[in-house]
Design a protein around this nucleic acid. Sequence first.
DNA 1: CTGTTAGCGCGTTCAT
DNA 2: ATGAACGCGCTAACAG
Lengths: 343, 343
Amino acid sequence: MTTIVDVARLAGVSVSTVSHVVNGTKPVGAETRRRVVHAIEATGYQAHGLARALRRSRTESIGLVVSDTGQEVFADMIRGVEQEARAAGFTLLLANSAEDRDLEVASIRALRERRVDGLLLAHVARSSPDLVRSIQQDGLPIVLIDRLSIPEVDQVGVENSGPMKVLVRHLIDLGHRRIALIAGDVDVPTLAERMVGYVDAFQEAQLPLDLGLMVTGRGLAPDSYAAATALLSAAHPPTAIVSASMLMSVATLQAARDRGLTVPADIAIATFDAPAYADLFTPRLTSVVQPAFQIGREGMRLLLRRIRQPDAPVRTVRLRPRIVHRESCGCPPDSTITLEEAA
Amino acid sequence: MTTIVDVARLAGVSVSTVSHVVNGTKPVGAETRRRVVHAIEATGYQAHGLARALRRSRTESIGLVVSDTGQEVFADMIRGVEQEARAAGFTLLLANSAEDRDLEVASIRALRERRVDGLLLAHVARSSPDLVRSIQQDGLPIVLIDRLSIPEVDQVGVENSGPMKVLVRHLIDLGHRRIALIAGDVDVPTLAERMVGYVDAFQEAQLPLDLGLMVTGRGLAPDSYAAATALLSAAHPPTAIVSASMLMSVATLQAARDRGLTVPADIAIATFDAPAYADLFTPRLTSVVQPAFQIGREGMRLLLRRIRQPDAPVRTVRLRPRIVHRESCGCPPDSTITLEEAA
DNA sequence: CTGTTAGCGCGTTCAT
DNA sequence: ATGAACGCGCTAACAG
């Protein structure tokens, strides 16, 4: 590889001059500059990023650790982060923690070793807050996305309880009283908040809560499918099911279909988070749709801000999801429900 | 940050000794090692990846440039790459070229500046083969994934024409004669190959080809939707439609539905590439499903091989997709079609 | 405006 | 088995 020294020699100038024309650090005479530029093109010289970063002690790269790259929501978030990072001239280092605490720790370690300028973390279910705190204390800029935790850190996620409350209230308005909730793992703050929204809706409507209709536990596809099937097979089954995340909503629809039930006639369904192309499901799912791309973008923006001004006030951003109203809840699709009406 | 010097001082040894215990480069006396290890733990020392990489002239990181992070297939590929990279102790640098040639070039440049040890490239539609050649000539290991091009480079993709031929033959066997193809951008080799499969099927069946039924052009959702709509509105419409990629298949189904047509009674549909959860569509799509995750994994494996032994023979890997047989093609789902029967 | 030079933090000969 | 010293390629502070 050709180095800055080669270029300098070829152009007949000193290395610092080359450095200055490359970085625009100091003014350089027209003729000298021409010779340098020529030499650069002749050799195809490209600065050595590592040496530069070592010297400048910043890498212009950030690390993104995601708990499950496989999920659609996260894929969209990654896109948002990537786009914003690129726009700012930053390179993205991606790591998948696969919902594994140890892997999360290891990934963060690897990224820090690479001296990323900042960290974006969508952390795993039960990761310790101390992990984040220690990173922060080391002075490494960090922003939490999607899954929020301690308020002393910049973070961006969506409103959870509000939208869920609207969803449930909508079903109540339609006359449903036995509304089941497939809540998933309530140790995940996001899911806990959604459950709160469910409970709130009942309280506001002054309706009794049937704890037997609230199912918590692992939210993976098989678990959710089992949960939905159990609910639907019960002696006194619910007339509607609300689920708290995409895997669960798909599983619910599948379970209803496999039991030969018609949605929404036999069982109404509404959900938080639906897959892309859910418009082609029959019936189409009434659901809360997260602005995943924007979460990623906003997270990266927050991180850039923190990198540039380390002492900026800490901020928690909550993005507002939108509600897509379809047929699965059992009313004509031209009726609308909005989040605003809930405010 | 604590450096190797700090550790050495604290342990009362020289830096080279510390280096040796960290990297296991040379044997170190038991007592000395103990002191060093202790000092490392006390300080929380972590090697400076940049300095190390600069010295060793390798970064243990690879770059992945994808033409469209947004598409499901690519999201899965990324997962495959990431998993394999992590297992090998490599860090993944991700860039999205967003189907833009200039962006692709810029991304590659940025990654090379970071001195990645190798490059994985799912390149944009009309990228020049020279780009890849020049990278190869510079001695930077590179592997092409998904979209293959010149045979002098390691690459991994799927079989395209074979599976497409099977799909079309299946429709022919069902009695269809007017089978339309929504082919997309045939400048993309992958899509060109699929079109070949379509043509092959007709040739083998000794049936005439109606060129009016082959639609090429941009394969984005609106274009495909328009194409499908046009076909369905024609004076003498096809009885079946085959599409060459996911966006197109979804658009086709949507178009049929919007025109009030029943699938497969009014129009049969089969496709290359269906979205996850397509099982919840009505009717479920008969489709070729790509092993996207495996493509990513295999690509990374090939790259690791190339990094470790630069002179290994060049290899092109074709993975075999599987065919998921559902209702949209118009026959009972318990009948099966397999790729093997086509071989 | 241009050149000289000292590190950034580490791995690695080469002595001892 | 351990240590001293050099240099990977670059930027920046200083000198001229």
